[in-house]
Design a protein around this nucleic acid. Sequence first.
RNA 1: GCGGACGUGGCGGAAUGGUAGACGCCGGGGACUUAAAAUCCCCUGAGCUUUGCUCGUGCGGGUUCGAGUCCCGCCGUCCGCACCA
Length: 837
Amino acid sequence: MNERFDPDRADSHWQKVWDEKQCFRADDASAKPRSYVLEMFPYPSGRIHIGHVRNYTMGDVLARYKRMRGFEVLHPMGWDAFGMPAENAAMEKGVHSGGWTRENIANMKAQLKRLGFALDWSRELATCEPDYYGHEQALFLDLYEAGLVYRKESAVNWDPVDQTVLANEQVIDGRGWRSGALVEKRKLSQWFLKITQFADELLAGLGTLDGWPEKVRTMQENWIGKSQGLEFSFDLSSGDRLAVYTTRPDTIFGASFVAVAADHPVAQVAAQGNAEAHAFIERCKAGGTTAAELETAEKLGFDTGLTAKHPFTGADLPVYIANFVLMDYGTGAIMAVPGHDQRDFDFATKYGLPIIRVVAASAEDADRPFAGEAEAGDGVCVNSGFITGMSVAEAKAAVIARAEVEGWGEGKTVWRLRDWGVSRQRYWGTPIPFIHCESCGAVPVPKDQLPVVLPEDVDFQTPGNPLVRHATWKHVSCPKCGIPATRETDTLDTFVDSSWYFLRFASQPGDKPFDPEAIAKWLPVEQYIGGIEHAILHLLYARFWTRALSHIGLIEVREPFASLFTQGMVTHETYSREQDGREVYFSPGEVARSAEAAVLKTDGQPVEIGRVIKMSKSKKNVVDPDEIVASHGADAIRWFMLSDSPPERDLPWSEAGIEGCARFVQRLWRLFGQFDAGASGEDKALDRKRDQTVAAVAQDIEALSFNKAVARIYELTNVTEKAAPSASRSAAIRTILLLVAPMMPHIAEEAWQAIGQGLVAEAAWPEVDPALLVEDEVTIAVQVMGKLRDTITAAKGLPDDDLKALALASEKVQRSIGDAAIRKVIVVPDRLVNIVA
RNA sequence: GCGGACGUGGCGGAAUGGUAGACGCCGGGGACUUAAAAUCCCCUGAGCUUUGCUCGUGCGGGUUCGAGUCCCGCCGUCCGCACCA
């Protein structure tokens, strides 16, 4: 063996061998137990970033480990290749979206290969290719036929200068990111998927997902937002009726006004012939559309002059148009109870409306004033007519029952979840397979005419969707009546593309989206790994899509991902300096650091030490995985990704850390070089440590606690290095090699040449002797009054009385007790004795 | 605003209610070397009157023989919020 391990040579050599032998190709026909390990596929932005490396290293360790444990593993990779950046590149650099995307894919694929991931590249797919999105169009039409797709009007952000629709992230402080023009809300007719039809199922399904983080399940639960309440109508002074929805019917006696959304019909009527009301509604439209913006914006209202008659008290309540009421939730109108809802409280305070207490901690507190904020908590009803004295829960039921008996309202379940709007007024996406005909309306493209291929001869010289301006593409004849018609020019949300790619990985027939038998074999994904940023949307949409396909009988599986793991970000330190009134950032490499201060190497002047945050180009704190692979090798960067930080938390990148990893690679190499097949002699303690480590590392990998697995491998390495030569020591060295094989496959493969047979990629996980996992001696902590005073060594399983005697015999313990009388002795077998004196 | 999480040495972090700080990084000392790199060995929470003692897991309470861990109340930081993927 050479003195030093040369990653440059070994990495590419073994990557080529794995490729040629197709080691990681999943066999559909295999009789082995199956395991589908999947990481969220990347958007081909141009380069792999360190977050990808972390994500795919975790999945790779699991996939390789599962193979060692005898599973047939499916570990595929693909490209989430549609999306806005390709259009931005086309506009900014004059390149073609498709060419740009495909070039990025080629570059990133080469980068992934250099990291040595055990991927089945034969199943690679890209969502921007017709052989993927054509099947997606077919599935979309299936859902349409099943009544799960419909059209309705919906608001978008409209940039009046660029004449284009903007995504939320393109709207900055209410203005278009390029034009700087004030963004308007505009209504367009768009396609929707009926995810709300599955709201109950998606909610109930969360209960079966034991392998998901509690956090993600809670987030989805809140997102679906099931609430039970009362829908009822007010008689308006205009003679109309106004339906409102409330989750707090128990507070109905505290209602002091009624509010409707700006786009509510009542508001629209009020605006007719009233310039002020019209102006107010326009003002509401100017704001942002996100929930955060709506709810943090100052509460604004406009008094319509109408009044609504309270169903119990008969009082006339003023009707306002309010910017904090959402048309999409409930009925788009609310009864406002300022005492017990903070938004209503803020509004009432601003407009001088009554704030009435109708819930209190106890009946005696009925007239207690509010302490500057609403009280949303539980209690008993006060000042509330027939429900006075009831608990909140009783009152809810009583009010709903009364409304139903008297016929002016009914109990209703309302969901926060809204139907999924999938239309995007963009070019680089899956064409929605519909044709608009003047006489037949929206007609689905016949399935034998799929795929509707996205034309790639488009120009981006003028802003807006190039599909609309394309000379020929959209002009077709109606499939129904044959008269001239036009194609739908909107494309599908890219979340549709990522809602079924995991199904396509299981099988890729040319004539249909997937083979149900292959789905039944491989799905659900055993372990899905990706960023927490996908906790709601992607994961909910994928769950919905799977259920919808199951609903129409295409597949059996209901939940696509049995287990989910959300990994943390990779962070790095930041350095900056204020220059000409703005913050200028420097990369950590440009800065010389001491314990407390940092200076710029080029001018020796101090720079400010910023926070350790997610890598981003603008903060100049990115590191390029390729450079790390070139300087330290793939195994070192993989090892770094697994070390130290728990995988769900952020991982701070550091130069010292990666150097430490590279040193460890060399240290292992030296140790592997000491393997001696002919060594004899037994080292019982080392055998024990070895088998305990194997068992613990297996457990840690299965729990994805890679940082703990790494720590245990270090421990075993430390003791093995120090051990005298023996057969046990050689066995330990061989074992260490196998333990690191999923994590550092290149050095493992290289060293395995001398130690094992065949490829380590095809080797089995080491066996353990269960007898060695149990210690025969244990260290017992001895406490006096809960404080540690001594430790004693005892045989495992020693009876409580013997342990007690040993503890009391300790000189340190005696000294600590002094002349105090012993009141009690607590013995935890094999662990601890606590003397209470 | 709503929802979710997190808080332990100089740093990343270990710790079924039972020996706080495993393991790694940084730092200090030493060995080897003409020298450097590499490597190896030792030390490394704070304080003290140092065979040992006291303090110590964001802050304040509580439960318990025993709390980083459980409960209550604060403080601080971060993340998500429907057209970014």
